[in-house]
């Protein structure tokens, strides 16, 4: 009985200590970001890995999501004779929620896991210790470009997802269902507000990018130097980052939406 209580207590202390460790890690990444050099070449390579290589996935998914939204919204709205609001429903769903959230989850699964595995492999093969031996900060040399690349790529990928999704909805609504193209676009443009919708969407992309970047690099950086440890940190990156994205999504919506 006392053993169970002690284990629970030890676990809680471990968890809080882990949170503190991660916060300190985040602080040192931010400090590294503010310190020259910029490491532009590495940054470009990392943006290529997480951004350009995720493009096909994001554009394909966005298009299909827009198409299914158009179809679903049509089925519901047609019952009320409100088909002229289709553009607003598709556009607002994509801009406010589906664009940033689905992009966040997809990029976490595609690029966040790769980031964690990449850093984990460097830990396993002692490359980070090698850097330390040459008095090069591994946080500055390896972690910061990877985290920043995710931060930069996420809002851009999210915006592309939304634009392609709106176009996918347009294809279904106008080309397949034969509705008026003007009413689709004008209801979209009338319903969307710059601050409430577009700015909130970009903010979500930035926050999700930050979360994915920090969590994936932290998990990779602290992974055990074994093949099993790396695979475990990769899995936990996807799980933890996805849950964090979904939870923070609620709070951004609640705080920003008013």
């Amino acid at each position: 009985m006392t053993g169970a209580v002690a284990r629970l207590g030890a676990r809680s202390v471990d968890w809080v200590a882990g949170l503190g460790h991660m916060t300190r890690f985040a602080g040192s990444v931010v400090a590294a970001a503010l310190r020259p050099p910029l490491r532009g070449r590495t940054l470009v390579r990392e943006i290529y890995d997480v951004g350009v290589r995720s493009l096909a996935l994001i554009l394909g998914s966005g298009f299909v999501v827009g198409m299914v939204l158009g179809l679903q919204a049509y089925n519901t709205l047609a019952r009320f004779g409100a088909e002229q609001s289709l553009g607003a429903v598709v556009g607002l769903s994509l801009i406010r929620e589906l664009g940033p959230v689905l992009t966040g989850l997809l990029v976490t699964g595609r690029a966040g896991s790769a980031t964690a595995a990449g850093i984990g492999a460097m830990v396993t093969t002692g490359q980070l210790d090698g850097l330390r031996m040459m008095s090069i900060s591994p946080i500055h040399f390896v972690v910061y470009p990877k985290a920043l690349a995710l931060l930069i790529a996420m809002p851009l990928l999210s915006a592309l997802f939304i634009v392609v999704g709106v176009f996918g909805g347009y294809v279904v609504v106008v080309e397949l269902l034969g509705l008026d193209p003007g009413s689709y676009l004008s209801s979209l443009e009338n319903a969307v507000d710059f601050r409430d919708d577009v700015l909130a969407s970009v903010l979500k992309g930035v926050v999700f990018g930050l979360l994915a970047g920090l969590i994936s690099t932290y998990r990779g950086y602290t992974s055990e130097p074994t093949a099993e440890g790396v695979s475990r940190s990769t899995t936990s990156t996807v799980v933890v980052a996805s849950v964090c994205i979904l939870i923070s999504n609620y709070f951004i919506t609640a705080l920003w939406g008013v």
């Binding site: 556009g91 915006a159 443009e189 710059f194 577009v198």
Partner: peptide, 25 residues
């Protein structure tokens, strides 16, 4: 690769601009 990243960043920014100006009014 530089070119690909440049196109990616430019495309992303254009998408944000399109959403802000055209759609967001």
């Amino acid at each position: 690769r530089d070119l690909a990243v440049g196109i990616f960043v430019l495309g992303g920014l254009l998408a944000v601009a399109y959403l802000s100006v055209q759609v967001g009014g």
